[in-house]
Amino acid sequence: MTASSNIRLTIEFNDPASNPEREDEQAQLLINDLQDKDIDFIDTVNRVPDSSSSDEAKSAGGFLVGLLMAEVKIDNAKKLFGYLRDRLGGKTIELTVEANGKKLSVKASSREELDYAIKAAQDFISK
């Protein structure tokens, strides 16, 4: 993978002890943080649109609850993972990494699991 290639990360807040409103709030707070003008290593960060026509799908205003998607150049992935490690340690999340047409999904609900998930994602990207 070249240094100018992009990777896409989808982060889902999915704590079974939480409620959808709180998960959506956590996603929106992280989006706001990543859109900060001082963070220049993110290419894009957005909510995930709800393309489901099901009335039972969890969505808020046309977006999936508790989900966000970020895109970053491969050479900035380490910065993003470090940022996420600082912000998400101890939160229950699912992280999906897309690179080179392949996907890796990992779950974490503790600081140790998040460290392992980030290491797995970095190894996946470097292949």
Rank of each mutant, 00 (worst) to 15 (best):
T2R: 09
A3E: 13
A3V: 09
S4W: 06
S4Q: 11
S5K: 07
I7D: 10
I7Y: 04
L9Q: 05
L9N: 05
I11T: 07
I11R: 02
F13T: 07
P16G: 11
A17H: 14
S18Y: 01
N19V: 03
N19R: 10
N19D: 12
P20A: 08
E21W: 05
R22K: 13
R22A: 15
E23L: 11
E25Y: 08
Q26D: 15
Q26E: 13
Q26Y: 11
A27D: 11
L29H: 09
L30H: 06
I31A: 06
N32S: 12
N32C: 03
N32H: 03
N32E: 10
D33N: 11
Q35A: 08
K37H: 11
K37R: 15
D38V: 05
F41G: 02
F41D: 05
D43P: 00
T44F: 00
T44R: 00
T44I: 02
V45Y: 00
R47T: 13
V48K: 04
P49K: 08
D50P: 04
D50V: 06
S51Q: 12
S51E: 10
S51W: 03
S52T: 03
S52L: 08
S52C: 06
S53Q: 02
S53W: 01
S54E: 04
S54P: 00
A57V: 14
K58M: 08
S59G: 10
G61N: 15
G61A: 13
G61Y: 12
G61P: 10
F63K: 12
F63L: 14
L64Q: 04
L67D: 04
V72S: 03
V72G: 10
K73D: 05
I74N: 07
D75T: 04
D75W: 02
N76D: 13
A77G: 01
K78Q: 14
K78E: 15
G82T: 11
Y83E: 08
L84K: 11
L84Q: 09
L84M: 15
L84R: 06
L84A: 11
R85Q: 14
R87G: 04
L88S: 07
L88G: 08
L88V: 04
G89M: 03
G89Q: 08
G89Y: 01
K91A: 10
K91W: 09
K91P: 01
K91C: 14
T92G: 09
I93P: 05
I93F: 03
I93W: 04
I93L: 09
E94W: 01
E94F: 04
E94P: 01
L95H: 04
L95M: 12
T96G: 01
T96N: 10
E98G: 02
A99F: 04
K102E: 12
K102P: 03
K103C: 09
S105Y: 02
V106Y: 08
A108N: 10
A108F: 07
A108H: 03
E113T: 12
D115T: 12
Y116C: 11
Y116R: 14
Y116W: 11
Y116L: 15
I118D: 06
I118V: 15
A120H: 11
A121L: 12
Q122L: 15
Q122I: 14
Q122W: 07
I125F: 00
S126Y: 04
